[in-house]
Amino acid sequence: MASPGKKAYPLRIDPALWEALQRLAARDLRSVNAEIEFLLREGLARRGVKINGDGAGRESGEP
Rank of each mutant, 00 (worst) to 15 (best):
R58K: 07
L24A: 12
D14W: 02
L17E: 08
N33S: 12
L44K: 01
G43H: 11
G43F: 08
R23F: 03
Q22D: 07
E35C: 14
L21F: 13
E37R: 14
E19P: 03
S60I: 13
G55K: 05
D14C: 09
M1Y: 06
G5F: 06
M1Q: 05
E19G: 12
I13H: 10
E62A: 07
D54A: 00
K6V: 12
E62P: 02
M1C: 08
K50Q: 15
A26T: 10
E42S: 10
D54W: 06
L39K: 01
L24S: 12
N33T: 15
S3K: 02
L39H: 00
A16Y: 01
A26E: 15
R41T: 00
I36N: 00
D14V: 01
N52C: 14
A26N: 10
Q22L: 09
Q22Y: 09
K7I: 08
L29P: 00
G43I: 02
S60D: 15
D54P: 02
N33K: 02
A16E: 11
R27M: 11
I51D: 06
P10Y: 02
L17Q: 10
A56T: 11
A34K: 10
S3F: 08
V32Y: 02
E35S: 12
K7E: 04
R58V: 09
A45F: 05
G48N: 06
M1R: 03
G57I: 04
N33L: 01
E42K: 13
L17R: 12
V32S: 04
A45V: 06
Q22C: 13
Q22M: 07
I36S: 02
A2M: 08
D28C: 10
L39M: 03
G43W: 13
R58N: 13
P63D: 15
L11R: 01
L24D: 08
A8I: 01
A45W: 07
D14Y: 00
K7A: 12
R47V: 09
R47S: 15
A8M: 11
E59G: 03
A8C: 14
P63N: 11
S3E: 11
G57S: 06
M1F: 06
G57K: 01
P15E: 10
G61K: 09
V49L: 12
S3M: 06
W18E: 02
E59T: 03
P15M: 02
G53E: 10
P15W: 02
G48P: 10
E42Q: 06
K7W: 05
Q22S: 12
V49K: 05
G57H: 11
P4M: 03
N33W: 00
L11K: 00
L24I: 10
R58L: 15
R30N: 01
S60G: 11
R46A: 15
W18R: 14
D14Q: 01
R41F: 00
R47Q: 15
G57E: 10
M1A: 10
P15Y: 02
V32Q: 04
R47E: 15
I51M: 14
S31R: 02
G61L: 04
R47I: 09
R12C: 04
S31I: 04
